[in-house]
Nucleic acid binder design. Structure first.
Length: 249
DNA sequence: GCGACAG
DNA sequence: ATCTTGTCGC
């Protein structure tokens, strides 16, 4: 298994930026956010963008992280789902502590370490990763899904619940309808209606997968819920595990 | 300068 | 993300 290259320079929580100051606006002294941005610029060069269709995977791995209130304790879950039946095949967890604060645009530095640890505990190697967040639809075109895909060199994409970057015209109300998410003149993702008359989700490619495949997979994986089963189950499982962890302490 | 800002 | 009750609807 690959060792994430940035683990050697984990920023300290004591250097967390305050709500009122954005990344890069802090006075000299700490370099955590700047360091992360530098690593981000370096890693993004490795993203593979493509429009070539992939062979439909038999299973996909959904990922999510649940945080403890107040502290930075967290549980990451990796859930393998069978694409044909939407049944959960395997679940793996990692209980740990987030070592980087939440900073818009730098979510990967907070969640990737936890997610990688959970993925490493799976008995079967993932074929495709589905993340809770964005991939190319990111200010630097390198969101969580892209970052994780590059670090593990696996195909990946993201499904976010709310808007972050880009513009779009709301897709039709029918399930399956979708509209381009554009920014600076390029299509960076798709706003997808996974259920009729339900708020759409934001889909974007992460690494080694085309947007069209991401959209069709998202629809195939969304049984009767807004959120596709892999990440939905990862959310449920990580919450459940955090509850258990709390109860026995 | 001001507001917005994945999870 | 998380803090929170009830409530409307399939």
């Amino acid at each position: 298994m690959i060792i994430p290259p940035w683990t050697a320079s984990r920023p300290r929580l004591s250097e967390s930026p305050q709500r009122t100051q954005g990344p890069g606006k802090r006075s000299e002294g700490s370099t955590s956010v700047h360091e992360a941005e530098r690593l981000q610029d370096e890693l993004k060069e490795s993203v593979v963008r493509t429009s070539a269709p992939i062979e439909p995977p038999r299973t996909v791995t959904g990922l999510d992280v649940t945080y403890d209130t107040g502290s930075d304790r967290a549980v990451a879950a990796a859930v393998v789902v069978d694409v044909a039946s939407l049944e959960v095949v395997e679940v793996a967890f990692h209980r740990g502590e987030a070592t980087f604060p939440y900073v818009p645009g730098l979510l990967a530095f907070r969640e990737v370490p936890l997610l990688v640890a959970a993925i490493e505990r799976l008995s079967t190697p993932p074929a495709l990763l589905v993340c809770d967040g964005y991939g190319l639809a990111h200010p630097k075109r390198f969101g969580l899904a892209s970052h994780l895909g590059v670090v593990l060199d696996l195909p990946s994409y993201g499904v976010a619940k709310t808007a972050f970057v880009g513009e779009f015209t709301p897709p039709a109300e029918q399930r399956g309808a979708h509209a381009d998410l554009t920014d600076a003149g390029e299509v960076i993702g798709s706003v997808v209606r996974t259920q009729t008359a339900v708020k759409p989700v934001f889909v974007s490619a992460g690494h080694r997968i085309g947007l069209d495949d991401c959209v069709s997979l998202t629809l195939r994986l969304s049984g009767r819920h807004r959120i596709p089963e892999p990440t939905r189950q990862a959310d449920i499982e990580s919450r459940k595990m955090l509850r258990e962890w709390r109860s026995l302490e």
